[in-house]
Simulated scan of single mutants.
Amino acid sequence: MPCTEKVKVKTPSGRELELVPVKVWQLNPRGRKGVKVGLFQDPESGRYFRTKVPENYPLCS
């Protein structure tokens, strides 16, 4: 199911924007608490970047 909620993130160019992630997945390192990571696209440059999203954000692709 596609992602629909906006998340406030800092882009690689340094601006803070509210963007909808392309994909969100869970990273679970062995022996530690997992984090959710989102894939975003920078509207200025078109480049993709990853950053942490809030724990209550649903997994989506």
Score class of each variant (00 low, 15 high):
K6E: 14
K8M: 14
P2Y: 07
T51P: 07
S13F: 07
E5F: 06
K52Q: 12
W25G: 05
R15W: 13
S13G: 14
P2T: 11
L19V: 12
V35I: 15
W25A: 01
C3H: 07
L17F: 10
L19P: 15
T11E: 08
D42Q: 02
E5Y: 07
W25L: 03
K52R: 11
P21C: 11
Y48Q: 04
K36D: 11
V7M: 09
Y48I: 00
G31M: 11
E44Q: 07
C3P: 12
R30A: 14
K10G: 06
G34I: 12
V53I: 08
V35G: 00
P12M: 09
Q41K: 13
K52A: 06
V22M: 09
Y48H: 00
L39T: 08
V9Q: 07
P21M: 09
L39P: 00
L39N: 00
G31V: 07
V24Y: 05
P21V: 10
C3T: 10
L27Y: 06
Y57Q: 12
V53E: 10
K33Y: 10
R15Q: 14
L59V: 09
E55G: 05
R30H: 08
V7P: 04
K8I: 11
K6N: 10
S45R: 00
E16R: 09
G46D: 06
T11G: 08
F40N: 01
P29S: 08
